[in-house]
Design a binder for these strands. Structure first.
Length: 485
RNA sequence: GGCCACGUGGCGGAGUGGUUACGCACCGGUCUGCAAAACCGGGUACGCCGGUUCAAUUCCGGCCGUGGCCUCCA
């Protein structure tokens, strides 16, 4: 059976045919490292991780190359560096900001259950490739120098605007931004610009004397070229990147290499809102991945608090919350808008918890290789329909088909060996250690039950319930105390 | 203003030109002294107005609503 993917460029779902099945190539726009990643940043990371896993499953892990860049040169980074480290020289301050943010991002993404991409190139390590591209564009007449900038000449590319469906003439009519005077055409965009004193700077291309730095779009053209070649299979990112970022990437790469396409499939994940509103710092509803990972356990699982007497491995809470967030995210198809709410997060966590209970009750062995169920695979092959895939998981859980359940969770990146296997996790430990007094109450209630004093029996049960202890009367006459939710 | 998405039962969320996906919540039942848990069952939804069709939630047109892009943004 085929893999079918929706392509933003052709606006249709097509059968995926890799250029070279022995080397399937995907590029996804990664973060600009200047601040904590938010829950909206998490979406493409998770979505394309699932695609990465699916491609590895279909073509073999060693036949898939996934490139996700790190943007570490950018005005926002400079601004943040000045703000946070006013006493340091700018370039040192920038290094502090990018290193710190980069590490945080990787910790966040790992907690979300994402595999590391094959390559994570950094923009600042590809300045030479960017300059080579710029020289090529100069040579082919697609770029020009003006006031120490190099600009891409949009009218020089006849079919510019196909991805975002913005014909050139319309865009010019609709443009209402202040246009720099040195631009020949208001749509032209910067490939290279001069650096101000103290800013990161490199020797400029195209005979420009002053040192400068790259424009935003050129880095992705350079890095995808370096690591994937002139044309490749899949290019992904958030829907907001369609214009201008991806449109401009296409323009740069195609004109530099004289190719008809940059990537064969353009995939874009839908936007995310928080509690029904646009997420923004001014509204105060900015949810970072860190916020989600730090969610107290008591709202997700039947335990009273985060700390317990049993030994727990480091970062277990973040990892569990990360899986829950991932699961919550995959409940909606990647291309659809999503409303991120605490309710959604909690409900996803509840369901994932039940899946894990099924596996744990069956002593699921994660070391064994399992066959991924056909119906789950079919759902994913249909343009990454993760909600439909999750639906198949529910049936396997209900029928106690633990092999299929485990295999499915694994393919979706939702299976964590330690959460399945370990028996010392408070997270899955329902048994309660009662105080002597509580123990006596349980005994007193049982005595009352024996003499059929239901009134007294229920009174004691209510009293214990108020302490957060729920009693379960078993059919063999014993009583099990459990933590109440 | 231009371009583009989305609008499904209380909530979440797939999907389809004609056989009431699925999950949560809710209600009923079995079990239980009563509960809890578990299991079984129940509720025929697709923004509005037209059109096409034997038949539309599904196709077409218009309208309304929400959101995105056009400036940094996943």
């Amino acid at each position: 059976m085929d893999l079918r993917l929706y392509d933003t460029l052709t606006r249709e779902k097509r059968v995926f045919t890799p250029i070279d099945p022995a080397r399937v190539r995907m590029y996804v726009c990664g973060p600009t490292v200047y601040d904590y990643a938010h829950i909206g940043n998490a979406r493409p990371v998770i979505v394309f991780d699932v695609l990465f896993r699916l491609l590895r499953h279909l073509y073999g892990a060693e036949h898939v190359t996934y490139v996700r860049n790190i943007t570490d040169v950018d005005d926002k980074i400079n601004a943040r560096a000045t703000e946070e480290y006013p006493s340091l020289p700018l370039n040192e301050a920038i290094r502090e900001v990018t290193n710190k943010t980069d590490k945080q991002f990787h910790d966040d993404v790992a907690a979300l259950g994402c595999l590391p991409p094959t390559v994570e190139p950094r923009a600042t390590e590809h300045i030479e490739e960017m300059k080579t591209l710029i020289e090529r564009l100069m040579k082919s007449g697609n770029a020009y120098v003006a006031e120490e900038h190099v600009l891409f000449s949009v009218p020089s590319m006849k079919d510019y605007g196909k991805l975002s469906n913005r014909p050139l003439d319309e865009m010019i009519a609709g443009a209402r931004v202040d246009v720099a005077a040195y631009k020949r055409n208001e749509m032209d965009f910067v490939l290279w610009k001069p650096s101000k004193r103290g800013e990161p700077a490199w020797p400029s291309p195209s005979g420009i004397k002053t040192q400068g730095r790259p424009g935003w779009h050129i880095e992705c053209s350079a890095m995808s070229w370096k690591h994937l070649g002139e044309t490749f299979d899949i290019h992904g990112g958030g829907i907001d990147l369609v214009f201008p970022h991806h449109e401009n990437e296409i323009a740069q790469s195609r004109c530099a290499f004289h190719t008809s396409v940059m990537a064969n499939y353009w995939m874009h994940n839908g936007f995310l809102q928080v509690e029904g509103e646009k997420m923004s710092k001014s509204l105060g509803n900015f949810v970072t991945i860190q916020d989600v990972l730090a969610t107290p356990m008591s709202s997700l699982v039947p335990i009273a608090n985060d700390e317990g007497p049993t030994p727990i491995f480091a970062g277990w809470k973040e990892r569990w919350n990360g899986l829950c967030a991932r699961f919550a995210m995959l409940q909606t198809k990647y291309s659809e808008p999503i409303d991120w709410t605490t309710r959604r997060f909690n409900e996803a966590g509840d369901e994932l918890y039940r899946f894990y209970e099924v596996l744990r009750d069956a002593y699921y062995d994660t070391s064994l290789t399992r066959e991924v169920p056909d119906n789950l695979l079919a759902a994913l092959r249909d343009d990454l329909n993760t909600p439909a895939a999750i639906t198949t998981l529910r049936a396997t859980a209900k029928s106690q088909d633990v092999s299929a359940l485990g295999a499915g969770l694994s393919l979706l990146g939702l299976l964590d060996d330690e959460f399945v296997r370990r028996d010392d996790l408070l997270l899955f430990n329902h048994a309660l250690s009662l105080t002597a007094e509580q123990e006596a109450m349980v005994n007193a209630r049982n005595a009352a039950r024996v003499r059929k004093d239901w009134k007294e029996s229920d009174r004691i049960r209510d009293e214990l319930a108020a302490m957060g202890i729920c009693l379960r009367d078993n059919s063999d006459g014993t009583t099990t105390p459990e933590s109440a939710r």
